[in-house]
Design a protein around this nucleic acid. Sequence first.
DNA 1: TACTGCACTTGCATATTGCAAGCACCTTGC
DNA 2: GCAAGGTGCTTGCAATATGCAAGTGCAGTA
Lengths: 145, 145
Amino acid sequence: MAMREKPDWNGCPTRYAAGIVGDKWCFLLLRDVLLHGKRTYREFLASPEGISTNILANRLAKLEALGMFTREPDPRKASSVCYFPTQKAKDFLPALISMMVWATRYDEVTEAPASFAAGFTEDPAAAIAWYQAEIDRVDQALRTI
Amino acid sequence: MAMREKPDWNGCPTRYAAGIVGDKWCFLLLRDVLLHGKRTYREFLASPEGISTNILANRLAKLEALGMFTREPDPRKASSVCYFPTQKAKDFLPALISMMVWATRYDEVTEAPASFAAGFTEDPAAAIAWYQAEIDRVDQALRTI
DNA sequence: TACTGCACTTGCATATTGCAAGCACCTTGC
DNA sequence: GCAAGGTGCTTGCAATATGCAAGTGCAGTA
């Protein structure tokens, strides 16, 4: 019944991931930051899934506490706030994309074109690098205002 | 503010994934099936996170409805039940491992040895194939009783 | 000095969870 | 044939989390 032991162990990092990503709203906020270039409270609130404002505040605090986001004044407008992804969040990108590829395959009404998954499976490193670069571009553009 | 358009679109498969994996318990059940060779209600119930029995029943039904698990009589004991992963669930493995690699890096108290992540980053395809083979081995052993 | 926009907070009704018990259906032992 | 035990759930209820609407505090702006 127990699986044969592998040279490399297969234990509980899943639980750690589940604690962060095993929440619909955190998951979608990660998407908004990593894939849609969103950085402000208003932008997150405007996502089509319709997160409510108290939950958004709660999850932003959670993600900040977990070291996924940093909360900083908005360079464009000091009275406003930006949430930037940390390296930890950025490093989650390959996993996120991997899930998207899977979803694209199995969601019968996916909006993603076949070329998205194809591009990733063809050259995963290049695809990830492209998204990484986009994130850095957005953040650098913001921070150098 | 909006991200530059990419040749390959980056839309909403995330939401689809969030609907399944954006739930702590579904996520951990997937781990139990894909990585720990668990197949029965009792085994899931015994996982260290301590899922309660009503939630377990609810999530097993959900995962079955989503086409991730099939519910079949246990070949070892007709009165008992087995939950087997479908191809859809098995195809989630790369994403799951990708998250584990990330977690291993950032969880300060991870139980996973460095060699786990190293082995994966060195040759991802081989690592995934190994786990895939383990799953098939478990299921075939069960079904051929 | 009122007015507006932003980032939250608060209150409250509803939904989801966790915990403990119970139940129906086998199989097993005698 | 029948009590005992195992397995896969269901039920009831208290505690917690969520969704919705409204309100608050604080800059900047007119």
